[in-house]
Design a protein around this nucleic acid. Structure first.
Length: 107
DNA sequence: GGGCTGACCGGGT
DNA sequence: GACCCGGCCAGCC
């Protein structure tokens, strides 16, 4: 299984109403230092994934892409029932999803 | 096949 | 607690 496929599965495994970070996904696919790679995959296949449930470690939306604007991500997250502040920040203590045991074996 | 790039992370200041 | 710096690894020239 390719790295991209693993990332795809993890992103699809994020429960509704929860968010996670690039580093967490990288860890779940057994590449702890590959957080940047996750961003690349999401940029490529993001249109078919729940890319909006993925943020950086500060809980902040880091994309500037025209096709995936921060405003769209905020709207989608609020649609999932997640509170997003006016500065596009998310409370990871409350909505963060750090993976579950059944997802830890994708290496 | 070598080198540059990126929607990032951790640790130190 | 917030900012800066160096390193990481797969993908795409």
């Amino acid at each position: 299984m390719d790295f991209a496929d693993k990332v795809t599965r993890i992103v699809n495994s994020i429960p509704c109403g929860r968010v996670t970070t690039y580093g967490t996904i990288a860890t779940l696919v057994a590449v702890p230092r590959g957080a940047r790679l996750v961003g690349g995959i999401l940029h490529q296949k993001g249109s078919k994934l729940a890319w909006y449930r993925v943020v950086n470690r500060r809980g902040f939306i880091s994309t500037n892409c025209w096709d995936h604007p921060k405003t769209l991500q905020k709207a989608l997250l609020e649609q999932e029932g997640i509170e997003v502040s006016a500065d596009f920040m998310i409370n990871l203590e409350k909505y963060g999803w750090w993976g579950e045991e059944k997802y830890l074996g994708y290496s």
